[in-house]
Structure formats: C-alpha cells, structure tokens
Lab assay of single mutants.
Amino acid sequence: KELVLVLYDYQEKSPREVTVKKGDILTLLNSTNKDAWKVEVDDRQGFIPAAYLKKL
C-alpha cells in the first residue's frame, strides 16, 4: 500500500472529506484525480486536496 505525508492541516468541508493534521502519515487509496486524493484516516475514507499531500 502507498503512504502519503500530510503537509498542512486540513479541515473537512464536506462529508466526503476527512480532517488531517500536518505530519500525519496516511494510507493512499486513490490518486487518479489530480485535485483530490482519497485516503484512509482512522477507519474513515475520504478526500483531501492533493496539494496537501506528498507521496512517500
């Protein structure tokens, strides 16, 4: 599985998104959309803007 590093805090703005903190390391589920990547956070799945993430 692929991991990503969170570069900036992000507060979810819709039910399809998830809230993350800078420095979190998350499982990347889908990065086919260049604008928003799907990740898993504490058994929740949701989207975060790709600009907030860096592949490890």
Rank of each mutant, 00 (worst) to 15 (best):
residue 1 K to W: 11
residue 1 K to H: 11
residue 1 K to Y: 13
residue 1 K to N: 10
residue 2 E to Q: 14
residue 3 L to S: 06
residue 3 L to P: 02
residue 3 L to A: 05
residue 3 L to T: 07
residue 3 L to V: 07
residue 3 L to G: 02
residue 3 L to H: 08
residue 4 V to I: 04
residue 4 V to T: 02
residue 5 L to G: 01
residue 5 L to H: 02
residue 5 L to P: 00
residue 6 V to M: 01
residue 6 V to E: 01
residue 6 V to Q: 00
residue 6 V to K: 00
residue 7 L to A: 02
residue 7 L to V: 06
residue 7 L to R: 04
residue 8 Y to Q: 14
residue 8 Y to H: 12
residue 8 Y to E: 13
residue 9 D to E: 04
residue 9 D to V: 04
residue 9 D to Y: 08
residue 9 D to F: 05
residue 10 Y to V: 02
residue 10 Y to C: 06
residue 10 Y to I: 02
residue 11 Q to R: 11
residue 11 Q to Y: 15
residue 12 E to S: 15
residue 12 E to G: 15
residue 12 E to P: 13
residue 12 E to D: 06
residue 13 K to R: 14
residue 13 K to L: 12
residue 13 K to A: 10
residue 15 P to W: 08
residue 15 P to V: 09
residue 15 P to C: 10
residue 16 R to Q: 14
residue 16 R to V: 13
residue 16 R to F: 15
residue 16 R to P: 07
residue 16 R to K: 12
residue 17 E to M: 05
residue 17 E to T: 06
residue 17 E to Q: 06
residue 17 E to S: 08
residue 18 V to R: 01
residue 19 T to Q: 06
residue 19 T to M: 04
residue 19 T to V: 04
residue 19 T to E: 03
residue 19 T to D: 04
residue 20 V to D: 01
residue 20 V to A: 13
residue 20 V to L: 03
residue 20 V to T: 03
residue 21 K to S: 09
residue 21 K to P: 01
residue 21 K to F: 10
residue 22 K to W: 04
residue 22 K to V: 06
residue 22 K to H: 05
residue 23 G to S: 01
residue 23 G to Y: 04
residue 24 D to G: 03
residue 24 D to T: 11
residue 24 D to W: 15
residue 24 D to E: 12
residue 24 D to M: 15
residue 25 I to A: 00
residue 25 I to V: 11
residue 25 I to S: 01
residue 25 I to W: 03
residue 26 L to E: 00
residue 26 L to N: 01
residue 26 L to A: 06
residue 26 L to P: 02
residue 26 L to M: 03
residue 27 T to L: 14
residue 28 L to W: 02
residue 28 L to P: 00
residue 28 L to Y: 01
residue 29 L to K: 03
residue 29 L to A: 03
residue 29 L to M: 06
residue 30 N to S: 13
residue 31 S to F: 06
residue 32 T to Y: 09
residue 32 T to M: 11
residue 32 T to R: 09
residue 32 T to C: 14
residue 32 T to P: 04
residue 33 N to M: 09
residue 33 N to Q: 10
residue 33 N to K: 08
residue 33 N to D: 13
residue 33 N to E: 10
residue 33 N to H: 10
residue 34 K to M: 12
residue 34 K to W: 10
residue 34 K to L: 10
residue 35 D to A: 11
residue 35 D to T: 11
residue 36 A to N: 12
residue 36 A to K: 13
residue 37 W to T: 01
residue 37 W to R: 00
residue 37 W to K: 00
residue 38 K to A: 09
residue 38 K to T: 08
residue 39 V to I: 08
residue 39 V to P: 00
residue 39 V to K: 00
residue 39 V to T: 00
residue 39 V to M: 03
residue 39 V to G: 00
residue 40 E to V: 11
residue 40 E to H: 06
residue 40 E to I: 12
residue 41 V to N: 08
residue 41 V to H: 09
residue 41 V to M: 09
residue 42 D to W: 09
residue 42 D to Q: 11
residue 43 D to T: 10
residue 43 D to W: 07
residue 43 D to L: 09
residue 43 D to P: 03
residue 44 R to L: 07
residue 44 R to V: 08
residue 44 R to F: 08
residue 44 R to H: 07
residue 44 R to N: 05
residue 45 Q to N: 08
residue 45 Q to R: 09
residue 45 Q to V: 15
residue 45 Q to S: 10
residue 46 G to F: 15
residue 46 G to H: 11
residue 46 G to S: 07
residue 47 F to S: 04
residue 47 F to V: 08
residue 47 F to D: 08
residue 48 I to M: 11
residue 48 I to T: 02
residue 49 P to N: 04
residue 49 P to H: 05
residue 49 P to V: 05
residue 49 P to Y: 05
residue 49 P to R: 03
residue 49 P to A: 04
residue 50 A to P: 10
residue 51 A to L: 11
residue 51 A to H: 14
residue 51 A to D: 10
residue 51 A to Q: 14
residue 52 Y to E: 03
residue 52 Y to M: 08
residue 52 Y to N: 08
residue 53 L to Y: 01
residue 54 K to C: 15
residue 54 K to W: 10
residue 54 K to Q: 14
residue 54 K to G: 05
residue 55 K to Y: 08
residue 56 L to D: 03
residue 56 L to H: 05
residue 56 L to E: 03
